[in-house]
Write a protein that binds this DNA or RNA. Structure first.
Lengths: 194, 194, 194, 194
DNA sequence: TATGAATGAGTCTTCATTCAT
DNA sequence: CATGAATGAAGACTCATTCAT
């Protein structure tokens, strides 16, 4: 890996959480220089734009979250148990493992309505991929006779995601861990009843 | 109502939807003068600073949404039917009735994490009041033997809100009406099964 | 005249000569604040852009030069004498009357080849108007039997302008007053022989 | 020729036309790396700074132009015919033979008034050499009885240059080939009448 | 010698805010 | 009360230049 690539990665690693906290527009070049210790010139030497940093930081945050879910899922065998990884992680949410600032998709969805169409598009894409992944799990679970045949995969997938995102948002808003636990409790029951 | 109060209200009415669309930080004084036809000086004559406008615009957007739900609820008699007003409205969501830009609580929750603590607090308060209102409905419904006695009001209320907010966010992100309909479908079933 | 208009005019007056000296791109906002004593914000309150200032400064410089020629011409009666105003003024060139930095059309022509198409267009327009004005004088002179009927107005007009601009450029480059005098001497003979 | 010299020459060759088009200040190091395919470090390895490149690029452009006139003149026998090479070339001006961007002396004269004294000095020197070369031709022509004895060599030389530069500038400004043809027509007559 | 990476002063522009009128 | 004009800090971004490798 070249030095340029190292610096790029370094910049992304350091800035990602600010982007996810202050918002992708609310994060300034100054924020970025402060947290990296680099100069503006250096950042512009490694990225074309603030937008490019923004986009890659979003991907980075997304990656952390995906990884978190994936590794937990791999530990689990049945499809039902795999799905239960979602409420499990959201419940045992911790700032050290989960991207600081919450779900990057949620954050981007809300922030970049008008202001940043490319980022919004990236987030929408990520969301749909996520949804399709859950649908895939559900279909496999149906095949494996784990879930009811009558189950409507897309509706279920969307519901799981809505509860998840809604829960994360409520936690972020109220800083009340109890709330998300209760919501995830419902989600667990919902999945168990599929 | 004094002239000052009228102007204040006028400013709020006009700016509220920009705030809910562009974000409370992303909306500039220039945006405000453009949409009101007033001068910056005039805005500062009626409000202490941008934050004050921000706060009142948030309240205004909140009011529109509350009103929407309340009037629909009043038409309905049983508590179950009252609760079903939520998925009903979210489903028949329209930019003319619902605040443009989506749920102000959700928006504020996401945007104002670090950047605007007072606004975040207001949103948190509004959320808790909303939650408590649903709890109240649930308790009354239990008393009226509409709902199961075993039902845990806070968990149910939080779940309803999570699905609602999650659904709105997904709609905002994907611009896909079908998605929210499916999610609200689940919510309807959930409420009907209480 | 409103205060805004006064400030605008003030800014133009003060900056015009820098633009004509340092070039329209080479003049920075800092140059402009220094020479006006105003802040950047104030300049942007009165002009949309640096480009807008640039364009108006060009017009201002153009105006000074046109005025210089016009007033000298009005003093003169015959068309031949009127044309002789050009070498006369270029000869008695002085930094106090003539725009500092030389002919704005010449300067703009050279500077804004690629970099500033709108400005170049303005300069080209000004040039053509100037040329047509000379053609008009020539035609009137022909009618008045002052000039030969065989004279080709456009060629003569273009020649006068080329010698004039060439002379100004040579003066600017060499800082040698003698040179322009010699060139204007030729121009005078040329006009006298028409 | 050492490798260093080769690289230097390569850089000059490639950058010269940008300098003459965008201006000596308007051309950035990035422009230079783009057009050469080299790195900034490499350019700084071969030249002390941007100014040095600037100066040599100016010389290079000057050389092209001089060469163009010289070779045309060598084909011609009488001094009058040699002088007529100027309007001939300016008339048959083509972007492939003539330095792109026009006469480097003219460009430098206009651009570098305040901003770049050394470059201006170089241009002034080149101009005077040019003028003296024409004076030389005129004197030889007088000796050879081609031109009138009464002719004032410096005035004629300056006039020729003024018309030439004025014409080139007008062409650059208006992009109208017809204009320069008319001007060069006058110049031809002027030389023929010497 | 050539490179890639970093620098920091500089560019233009927008921001929320103030205040004399 | 409302206005128009001014402020200066902060915004993103580009520049010529340097230096370890």
């Amino acid at each position: 890996m070249s030095k340029a690539d190292k610096t790029k990665e370094f910049i992304i690693e350091r800035t990602a959480s600010i982007f996810n906290t202050k918002g992708y527009a609310g994060t300034s070049l100054n924020d970025m220089t402060e947290v990296t210790g680099l100069t503006k010139g250096s950042i512009y030497g490694n990225f074309k734009n603030k937008e490019e940093v923004t986009l890659e930081a979003f991907k980075f945050n997304l990656g952390i979250m995906s990884c978190l879910f994936s590794t937990e899922m791999e530990k689990r065998k049945t499809y039902r148990e795999k799905l239960l990884a979602y409420p499990f992680i959201a419940n045992n949410y911790s700032e050290t493992t989960f991207p600081k600032g919450g779900c990057p998709i949620l954050n981007t969805a809300v922030e970049s309505d008008d202001t940043h169409p490319i980022l919004k598009q990236q987030a929408a894409l990520a969301f749909i991929r996520w949804k399709d992944k859950i649908i895939d799990l559900l279909n496999k679970g149906i095949e494996a006779k784990e879930f009811s045949e009558k189950l409507q995969p897309e509706q279920v997938a969307l519901t799981i995601l809505a509860v998840l995102e809604g829960g994360i948002m409520i936690r972020k808003l109220t800083d009340n861990q109890e709330y998300i636990e209760k919501i995830m409790n419902t989600l667990r029951c919902y999945i168990e009843g599929l």
